[in-house]
Design a protein around this nucleic acid. Structure first.
Length: 476
DNA sequence: ATACATGATTCAAT
DNA sequence: ATTGAATCATGTAT
């Protein structure tokens, strides 16, 4: 802005200055006739006044023409150039070459990171190419009037504003509620597309305008002295002004991406419980493969299909299940131990008869699990037996939670099976998915067993619609 | 209001 | 790439 004004005023000043200076030069040259002097005077007059007139006046062109055709023109022109040469030194040959705006760089980086402005992903480069092509191609010829520029500038500005509005509308991802994965992709693609279109337009407008101005200056340089450097400066000034628009565009895009992102993540965070049936199926699989609860990819797919959830969700579920099962087992073991010890001390013989299977195994598993340190909420495993029973029951209900009513057919056999495996460690098999990832040995490799027996837990599963939220587990 | 249950995410290890 | 572990965030029960 400041540069522009300075430049313009400088040019204006120059011409005025020439008005002061020129006569001296002229006096130095001896002119034969009064008529010539008269003509020169006219020319000077024209030169001096031409800057006071708006160039879009109709006669401007004709004046320029007459001026150009005047036989004294070359001489005057050279003189003007000479003068300008001297004055132009003060033009502050600021090369500056300021480093790229850090904020712009930041925005650029982010856009690239989000895949909005990246080089590939299609579209971007071609849009730019189109823009430049259009800019260089759609160039009307040199003589363009001032008003044209005004109009053009106004037009550009208007386009910019309307586009910005439209853009912001697009960003309004409305449909407040759920955003699914596909939605996210779609919206991101949309943003990218809008951005690229806008950027293309921006570039086109910038180039067009720059070319116009350059051409105008070239045209004028036939009449008044304009150094190539000045034109350069002009171009950089224009670019700078357009950079503000560019910045705005990029900023808007960044904001859009951020909004989209946060909303998407929020939506993704929402937890919907699986259907009762789904949980049942999962639990069924889990407990019937307790020795090796690592479903193969195919098994996962099947489970996913049956449960109406995604494979990722199945993976999530099994991941959570395994770890929680294990945790609860240890908890149960600890507490069962305490309980067993206490009850044994209390009434020697048949102490924890009902749990003794579990208690007996607990020691085993305890060894396996070594010093486990999950954050037990209350280790105040007090003296109250009832508390412990409750705790145990709770734990058990957690672990075996699925069985409730519909599974009456299997539990015994399942656990039996499991127990057997306890005893014979290297008995993979079962439905054994042949090459499962982890445990080369089913039984004691992954936390081994459980002891939840006859106690049924209420598989506390709630109902919920099963949509397809984010897929993270197997991040492919 | 609080605690718990549970699906999802993150992070490191392999 | 898959898993275990920790953690987050939310829905539900108390």
């Amino acid at each position: 802005m400041e540069d522009g004004q300075r430049m313009y005023s400088q040019q204006g000043g120059l011409t005025n200055m020439s008005g002061n200076v020129l006569p001296q030069y002229n006096m130095g040259q001896d002119e034969p006739s009064d008529q010539r002097k008269q003509e020169i005077g006219d020319i000077l007059q024209q030169i001096m006044t031409i800057t006071d007139q708006s160039l879009d006046e109709a006669q401007a062109r004709c004046r320029k023409h007459t001026l150009n055709c005047h036989r004294m023109k070359p001489a005057l022109f050279s003189v003007l150039c000479e003068i300008k040469e001297k004055t132009v030194l003060s033009i502050r040959n600021s090369q500056e070459e300021e480093p790229p705006d850090p904020q712009l760089m930041r925005l650029d980086n982010m856009l690239i990171a989000e895949g909005v402005a990246g080089p590939e992903k299609g579209g971007g480069s071609s849009a730019a190419a189109n823009a430049t092509a259009a800019a260089s191609g759609g160039q009307p010829d040199s003589a363009i009037e001032h008003s044209d520029y005004r109009a053009k500038l106004a037009q550009i500005r208007q386009i910019y504003h309307t586009e910005l509005e439209k853009y912001e509308q697009d960003l309004d991802l409305s449909d407040g509620s759920e955003i699914k994965n596909s939605d996210y992709e779609a919206k991101l693609a949309q943003i990218r597309q809008v951005y690229q279109t806008e950027y293309g337009k921006y570039e086109q407008a910038c180039n067009e305008f720059t070319t116009h101005v350059v051409n105008l200056l070239r045209e004028q340089s036939r009449t008044r002295p304009i150094a190539p450097k000045e034109i350069e400066r002009m171009v950089t000034i224009i670019r700078k002004k357009f950079a503000a628009i560019e910045m705005q565009l990029k900023q808007s895009t960044c904001e859009a991406v951020m909004i989209l992102r946060s909303r998407f993540l929020d939506a993704r965070r929402k937890r919907r419980n699986f259907s009762k049936q789904a949980t049942e199926l999962l639990n069924e699989y889990f407990y019937s493969h307790l020795s090796n609860p690592y479903p193969s990819e195919e098994a996962k797919e099947e489970l996913a299909r049956k449960c109406g959830i995604t494979v990722s969700q199945v993976s999530n579920w099994f991941g959570n299940k395994r770890i929680r099962y294990k945790k609860n087992i240890t908890k149960a073991q600890e507490e069962a131990n305490v309980y067993a010890a206490k009850s044994a001390a209390a009434h020697e013989g048949q102490g924890a008869a009902g749990y003794n299977v579990g208690g007996g195994q607990a020691g085993m598993y305890m060894n396996l699990n070594g010093g486990d340190n999950y954050q037990s909420s209350d280790n105040s495993v007090g003296d109250n037996v009832q508390n412990q029973v409750n705790a145990l029951r709770h734990v058990i209900s957690q672990s075996g939670g699925y069985s409730s009513d519909s599974m009456h057919s299997t539990p015994a056999s399942m656990y039996e099976q499991h127990m057997n495996q306890q005893i014979t460690p290297h008995s993979r098999s079962q439905n054994g998915s042949p090459h499962d990832p982890k445990p080369e040995d089913s039984t004691d490799s992954w936390c081994a067993g459980a002891f939840m027996q006859g106690l049924d837990g209420d598989g506390d599963n709630y109902d919920g619609s099963s949509d397809e939220p984010g897929l993270k587990r197997p991040k492919i």
